[in-house]
C-alpha cells in the first residue's frame, strides 16, 4: 500500500494537510473489515522499526486479519499514555520506563523483547578511547543529567569509582565530543556513532550490555486488560513483528531502502539508515533468539534485568514479564 505516495500528492496538490494526514488512516479503515490495532513506536520513523515496516509492506498482518497503524513517537511523545488509554494496543518501551510506569500504577506487562542487549554505549574517539569501564575514571562524559543513574549502575557493576568521572550535561548530540568539550558520550550504539561515521569520524564504542548492564530495550508492552481481552490480536501483532524482523535480518539494506520508500518525508539518509540497520542486528539477535525465536527471554535474563533495575532504583518482580503471548506466537 503506497500510503505516503498518496499523501504527498495531496499535500502538493492542495496543501491541506489537515485532511491529508488524516486520509491514510481513513483509507485503511474503509478498506477491509479487519480488526484495527495501533502500535505506538518509541521514536520517529526510522530503520529502528524496520521489522514493523516489512510486516506492513509484505502483508504479514493483513493476512492475519489485522489492520495495523504504526504511530510514530517523538521527543514529546511518551509511549505509556496511548497504551494505557487504549489508543494503541501495544507500545514499544524499555524495561526501565515500563518499571517506572508500573510503579505509578499502570498495569503493563512486557510481552516481547526486541533488543536483547541494551543499546547504550560509551562512545569515544580513537585517540582517547574508552574500551573498558575502568577507562572512564578521570574522563569527562557528555550526557543528559537524567541518565546519571545509568552511569552509576555501570560503575557499581564494574567497580569503577563513580566520583572520578566528570559528568558534563549535554544535549543528545555528538557535537560536544567532536569539539573536544568531553572525552566520551553516553548514547545509543545505533545513532550518534552512526552519525559520526557518516560524517567521516571514526569512533570507539563500548557496549554497556557487554559489561553487566542488562536491561531489555525496545520491549513490547500491553495492559493486563488487553492481554486478557484481546489475546488473538496481540498474538497476530507479535507474530507479524517476528516475521518482519526475521526478514529484516536477512537483508538489512533492503530494510533500510523500504524505510525510505515508506517514509520519504522523514528526512532519512539512506547511508545512515543502512549503517544503523546493520549495527542493530547484533543487539536484537542472539543464540537465545536463534534457539527460541524473535523477542525471547529466559528467567536468567529477567533475573539479570531485575538486578540492573535495582541499581537504577526500581524494584520489580519477574511477573512484569509475561511470555504467554510470545509462546503462542512461536508455537504457531
Amino acid at each position: 500500500m503506497d500510503r505516503t505516495g498518496l499523501s504527498r500528492r495531496m499535500v502538493l496538490g492542495m496543501g491541506a494537510a489537515g485532511f491529508v494526514t488524516a486520509l491514510p488512516i481513513f483509507s485503511i479503515r474503509s478498506a477491509w473489515a479487519q480488526s484495527q490495532v495501533a502500535l505506538q513506536l518509541s521514536w520517529l520513523h526510522s530503520v529502528q522499526f524496520a521489522g514493523s515496516y516489512i510486516a506492513l509492506d509484505r502483508g504479514f498482518w493483513s493476512e492475519a486479519g489485522l489492520d495495523v497503524s504504526l504511530l510514530p513517537g517523538g521527543p514529546n511523545a511518551p509511549v505509556e499514555p496511548p497504551v494505557v488509554s487504549g489508543s494503541a494496543l501495544v507500545g514499544i518501551s524499555a524495561a526501565d520506563y515500563t518499571a517506572a510506569a508500573v510503579e505509578q500504577g499502570a498495569r503493563f506487562k512486557i510481552l516481547a523483547v526486541a533488543m536483547q542487549k541494551n543499546p547504550f554505549v560509551i562512545a569515544s574517539l580513537p585517540g582517547n578511547p574508552v574500551n573498558v569501564p575502568g577507562d572512564l575514571e578521570g574522563k569527562r562524559i557528555g550526557m543528559a543529567l537524567a541518565n546519571t543513574p545509568v552511569l552509576q549502575a555501570l560503575s557499581t557493576l564494574n567497580d569503577v569509582d563513580f566520583d572520578a568521572i566528570e559528568i558534563v550535561p549535554t544535549q543528545y548530540s555528538a557535537q560536544p565530543l567532536l569539539s573536544g568539550e568531553v572525552d566520551c558520550l553516553l548514547c545509543w550504539e545505533t545513532d550518534l556513532p552512526v552519525a559520526m561515521a557518516i560524517q567521516g569520524v571514526d569512533s570507539v564504542t563500548m557496549l554497556m550490555a557487554d559489561h553487566g548492564y542488562a536491561l531489555h530495550s525496545q520491549t513490547y508492552i500491553a495492559t493486563e486488560e488487553s492481554i486478557a481481552n484481546r489475546r488473538a490480536e496481540l498474538v497476530a501483532l507479535l507474530r507479524g513483528e517476528a516475521q518482519g524482523w526475521e526478514a529484516y535480518r536477512e537483508d538489512t539494506k533492503a530494510a533500510a531502502a523500504l524505510t525510505l520508500e515508506m517514509y520519504p518525508d522523514a528526512g532519512l539518509d539512506l547511508r545512515t539508515q543502512e549503517l544503523q540497520a546493520e549495527r542493530q542486528v547484533p543487539l536484537m539477535f542472539s543464540e537465545l533468539t536463534d534457539a527460541n525465536g524473535f523477542g525471547w527471554w529466559t528467567d536468567e535474563t529477567v533475573a539479570a534485568n531485575i538486578e540492573t533495575l535495582a541499581l537504577l532504583g526500581r524494584t520489580v518482580t519477574p511477573d512484569l514479564w509475561d511470555r504467554s503471548i510470545l509462546e503462542e506466537v512461536h508455537a504457531g
Binding site: 550518534l192 559520526m196 522523514a266
Partner: peptide, 24 residues
C-alpha cells in the same frame, strides 16, 4: 512545529529533530 514533537510523520519539526540527531 512543536506539535510535531508529539509524534508526527512529517513536517518541519520532524526534520529538525532528525537533522539535530544526525549531526547534519
Amino acid at each position: 512545529m512543536v506539535g510535531e514533537f508529539t509524534g508526527a510523520e512529517r513536517g518541519m519539526g520532524v526534520l529538525t529533530i532528525r537533522a539535530m540527531r544526525d549531526l547534519d
